[in-house]
């Protein structure tokens, strides 16, 4: 597979904060790649470094085999969809989309024709002469997308592009974006703090924490085999068990709630815990149980039954040994990164 982006020991320091800390990463051509993490984890800075909006303090950015670390944004074959869309308020929708062609000196007729085509692609035909302020949030998002795609970049950066949209629109756009990426064959690097979004759209996901990558994997790999407690908790939810476990040795383990079985009554044994049901949340197709066991709490998620156990019942939790995922130590928070 061809490499689209390669980051080598990439570091970016603001004042005394290491926003991005020795990141090494390869993104393949044609891939839908997500950078996932909480705010301040360095994912957006990493994207901005690739786009050329920040200068690396050290390390290298290689785009399509060329060192681009010191290239200005206008010299990189990369385009960006900004979180706030960054449409030009004084230009019509058509001129916004045609901007990249205009600054390259494409004649007016030609650039308007191609901008029209792009607007058709994002289903905004008929909106050409409106101002950005006359569009809805979802429509602005599409204009931003069309504007970034008109140059047929080999790499598209998307900085939380759906963050400002409401839930239903967001889900529609997720499907459309994925379809668009497939049909155009462009590499997408997608920054988000929404794990559901990252899992459903991406080929691979890098989970950022404290300026570094905690884990880089496919969505399934991340969910099924989280390597650190941070990833286990940030991607989906997880019970963290600690101690000595038969057949698995000593350490910390992640256990997904849906892998926990729950029965009424007390039946102790191996890979079992007895506890008291604290709280029951009925979620429709599933029911979430909070159980107080010795030394902590465990969450179990099970398909809803006709009969729901009342809070206060004594229950026994069990699981297969293979559902336990051993965890390594994550990236420690450094004092200077805690600003």
């Amino acid at each position: 597979m061809q490499t689209a982006v390669q980051l080598i020991n990439l570091t970016c320091i603001f004042g005394n904060v290491r926003a991005v800390d020795r990141v090494n990463l390869e993104v393949y051509s044609g891939e839908f790649f997500s950078m996932l993490g909480p705010s301040g984890s360095g994912k957006t800075t990493c994207l901005r470094l690739i786009g050329g909006f920040e200068a690396p303090s050290s390390g290298q950015i290689v785009l399509f085999g060329q060192d681009a670390s010191r290239l200005p944004p206008y010299a990189r074959d990369v385009n960006t969809v900004f979180q706030d869309y960054a449409l030009f308020p004084h230009m019509s929708v058509l001129d916004n989309v045609a901007y990249a062609l205009m600054v390259r000196g494409v004649p007016r007729a030609e650039r308007h024709r191609r901008a029209g085509e792009m607007l058709e692609l994002v289903k905004l035909s008929g909106m050409e002469h409106r101002r950005p302020s006359q569009l809805s949030g979802g429509q602005r998002q599409r204009v931003a997308l069309a504007r970034a795609l008109i140059n047929q970049p080999r790499l598209l950066l998307l900085d939380e592009p759906l963050g400002a949209l409401d839930l239903k629109l967001r889900e529609e756009m997720q499907i459309e974006l994925k379809a668009l990426q497939r049909s155009l064959g462009i590499t997408f690097i997608y920054v988000t703090h929404d794990q559901g979004e990252a899992l459903s759209m991406s080929d691979r996901v890098a989970v950022f924490n404290h300026g570094q990558i905690e884990q880089l994997d496919t969505p399934k790999g991340l969910y099924e085999h989280p390597q650190t407690e941070f990833v286990a908790r940030f991607v989906g939810s997880a019970n963290i068990l600690e101690g000595r476990l038969i057949g698995l040795g000593e350490g910390r383990f992640a256990l997904r709630p849906e892998r926990v079985r729950l029965v009424a009554g007390s039946e102790p044994g191996a890979h079992r815990l007895v506890g008291r049901l604290l709280d029951v949340h009925y979620l429709g197709s599933q029911t979430r149980y909070e159980v107080q066991v010795e030394g902590g709490r465990i969450t179990a998620l099970a398909p809803s039954q006709e009969e729901i156990l009342p809070a206060g019942s004594v229950v026994t939790l069990s699981w297969d040994a293979t559902s336990l995922r051993p965890l390594a130590d994550g990236i420690p928070a450094r004092p200077e990164a805690s600003v």
Binding site: P72, A75, D77, R104, N151, Q152
Partner: peptide
Amino acid sequence: MTQTLRPPRGLWRRVSDLFYLH
């Protein structure tokens, strides 16, 4: 085809590059 279309903005672009780097 996108790469070939670049107007001759040599000097301005070089100054702009300079400002970007410094």
